Computed example of a mutant assay.
Amino acid sequence: MATRADRRASGAARHRLLPGGRGAGPMPWIIAIMMFLTVLAAAAGLGLGAAVRAMSADLAGRASVQVVEADAQARARLATRTLAALRGADGVRTAIPVDPAVLADQLRPWLGDDATSGELPVPALIDVTLTPGDAAAKVAHLRRLLGGLSPRLRIEPHAAFLLPLAGLLSALGWLAVAVVVLMGLATGAVVVLAARGAHDSHRTTIDVLHLMGSTDVQIARLFQRRIGLDAMMGGALGFAFALLAILIIGLRLSATGSELLGAVNLDWAGWVLLAALPVGGVVLATLAARWTVLRALGRAL
């Protein structure tokens, strides 16, 4: 049975395996930087995913009908007939003509004052909202209907214009997911290297602990406790700075007034997932440290 002096020696040996003070080594700061980047990448992926879903839901059932007629009076008559036909067609929830003044304001940055002078034959537009269901089939039906009215009528689904943009946002979202995975692997690798270095630099202390009767599991618990504390401190610090950056970026996006950029937001499930990242980082660091030390101790026997 170990004496009181042996227990004091064992306690002193254990204490030497723990850091002299929190933040004294580089490990917390490395984990803080990696957690900061991980949370930002995860937030970007979640925000882009939300934007793609909002864009798809908003544009899937919408289309625009163009009345391409050079003569203004003929264009107005054809637009009236088209509007009546659309409002009575199957699969159409609403059909609303676009105000020519609003259209002219949108064209003015590219066409100048000629957009409102009436000299340019600007097509008349009708905004169409479809009923839920197969949007492609409904658009094909309306295209046949409008083709029977006049060859100067064109219908274009809104989703067709923004499909490349939606694909780009989806690709960026998956890239953000890949960055999160790579940062997790890099964090695990850093912890493994730190645990190996701590084990190699405390071999004498480990031998003393073995002589005092400590098992490999008990020794590994000391290492995982030290690295777990470092990971907790670094994860909390990195998450706090990432949260501040996300809030600042969110305010800047809201200030732009863009509907697309405004759709890049996080719901409550996204915030819960972000909050779980530091916890997952601590668990990952603790398990990696335990596995590394136990493997090193097993090889040393």
Results as ranks from 00 to 15, higher is better:
Met1Gly: 15
Ala5Arg: 15
Ala5Phe: 13
Ala9Gln: 15
Ala9Thr: 05
Ala9Ser: 11
Leu18His: 15
Gly21Leu: 04
Gly21Ser: 15
Gly25His: 02
Pro26Thr: 10
Pro28Lys: 08
Ala32Asp: 01
Ala32Val: 06
Ile33Asn: 08
Ile33Thr: 09
Ile33Cys: 13
Leu37Ser: 08
Thr38His: 09
Thr38Trp: 05
Leu40Met: 11
Ala42Val: 00
Ala43Lys: 05
Ala43His: 07
Gly47Phe: 00
Leu48Tyr: 00
Val52Cys: 04
Ala54Leu: 10
Met55Gly: 14
Ser56Leu: 13
Ala57Tyr: 11
Leu59Ala: 07
Gln66Gly: 08
Val67Thr: 03
Ala70Pro: 12
Ala70Gly: 10
Ala70Arg: 14
Gln73Ser: 13
Gln73Asp: 15
Ala76Cys: 15
Arg77Ile: 14
Leu78Thr: 12
Thr82Ile: 04
Leu86Ala: 01
Gly88Cys: 09
Gly88Thr: 10
Ile96Ala: 13
Ile96Arg: 11
Val98Glu: 01
Val98Phe: 05
Pro100Lys: 07
Ala101Tyr: 11
Leu107Trp: 03
Pro109His: 07
Leu111Val: 09
Leu111Glu: 02
Leu111Ser: 07
Gly112Pro: 01
Gly112Trp: 05
Pro121Phe: 07
Ile126His: 02
Ala135Thr: 09
Lys138Trp: 00
Ala140Gln: 10
His141Leu: 12
Leu142Tyr: 01
Leu142Met: 11
Arg143Ser: 15
Leu145Gly: 07
Leu149Trp: 12
Pro157Tyr: 02
Pro157Ala: 11
Ala159Met: 01
Phe161Ile: 10
Leu165Trp: 10
Gly167Phe: 06
Leu169Ala: 12
Gly184Leu: 07
Gly184Ile: 04
Gly184Glu: 01
Ala186Leu: 04
Val191Ile: 10
Val191Arg: 02
Ala195Trp: 01
Ala198Gln: 09
Ser201Gly: 12
Arg203Lys: 14
Thr205Gly: 06
Leu211Gln: 12
Thr215Pro: 04
Ala220Gly: 12
Ala220Ile: 03
Arg221Gly: 08
Leu222Glu: 06
Phe223Val: 03
Arg225Gly: 10
Leu229Thr: 05
Ala231Ser: 12
Ala236Met: 05
Leu237Gly: 04
Leu237Val: 10
Leu244Cys: 13
Leu247Tyr: 04
Leu251Gly: 14
Leu251Met: 08
Ser254Lys: 10
Thr256Gln: 11
Leu261Asp: 00
Gly262Trp: 05
Ala263Gly: 08
Asn265Tyr: 12
Val272Pro: 00
Leu273Gly: 06
Leu273Arg: 13
Ala276Asn: 02
Ala276Phe: 01
Pro278Arg: 01
Val279Asp: 06
Val279Trp: 08
Gly281Trp: 03
Leu284Pro: 02
Thr286Phe: 06
Ala289Met: 03
Ala289Val: 05
Trp291Phe: 15
Trp291Met: 14
Val293Gly: 00
Gly298Arg: 15
